[in-house]
Design a protein around this nucleic acid. Sequence first.
DNA 1: GGCCTCTTGCGTGTTTCGTC
DNA 2: GACGAAACACGCAAGAGGCC
Length: 347
Amino acid sequence: MKLLLVLPNSIFNKIQQLIESGKYASSSDFFIAAVENQLLLETTLSKGTDVVLPDTDTITSEKTREDIVKRFVLKPGKELIKTVATPLPEQLLYPGSDSENDLFLWGQINRIFPMKVGLRILANLLAEKNEQYIELDEFTEKAVELAKLVRSRLMAETLQITGKKDSLWSGLPSEDSDKSASRYKMQFLAYLRKDGIIEGGLGRLKFVNLKREENRKTHIGITEKGLEFCVLENPILDAGVYNSGSLSEEGRQFYLRHISSEVPGETRAFVDVLSLLKEGKNSQSSLNRELRKIWPKNWSGAVINTQRNGTVSRLAELSLMEKIKNGIEVEYRISKTGIDFLAKGTK
DNA sequence: GGCCTCTTGCGTGTTTCGTC
DNA sequence: GACGAAACACGCAAGAGGCC
């Protein structure tokens, strides 16, 4: 949508100076950042702060908002957190399945970073309450509110620094959509099905465990592996670096080691896609065609597409492959790290 | 203007819950 | 036990963004 805006010369000149100094790529970028900041402020103020911190009064400034985000997404003290047991196979296997090799992550989980944010929030809540488990609803509500703030901040920072829309915030819930909040909770975080099976990325990756208490309330705790991944340095959350990817090298290596030993379904998906890339199946259509032969026969074309897309996005985030734009088409290419992972994963 | 890719909102069938 | 309502689980496809 295009808007016609009348500005006093004094304001216009100041904006021009900021653009010329390189802080913004264009006047559009300046206005988008300004509007997003104002909308964020309005939304947060209208909701009050009861969902965030017990000792925070009213969010009245950018600095206060920053403090809240920092307090819940910065590295928690590892020694302050009591971990829980890793989920057992029977908490993960669907009726009729007997092998974790077939447990693919749902394709709509297309980023690891949103789960990292969720883990940070969970760990900080556990540390603050000095508990091993907390109520799932309490965690997910707070995670959604804070993840929205992280997303808004990330959008504004990325626009300022790179001058273009990057997708580092992909997967995090947006301020203006309950649907995206629901998606974040159900797909990236965790929940417990009625039959006791754990769903959601954090659960399927064994970074958290869930249990239903006698009062039927579900509780969530962080596993040892979840805590290890959680406290690893993150360029965005800990250093405010927005141009080196969403995970640190250490974080990427940990994730790969973890899935290799604990999450065979994710390893299988990675190995399947990387093997095909190595064989030269570099386009979306050729990948889909080949994956259809080796992935579950009951998956429709749309499901193959969803699963391929999610796997490719996570692989790219981990630097195991890259996407190269050729005009309007994209070529997938395995990286050196991808080849190394494949060598280890297929041994 | 049209095409391709990717993200994410929505539709639909199934299951669970509450009430009578 | 029957029924309707609500919640859940899964999967599809609309639409935004980028490019020619």
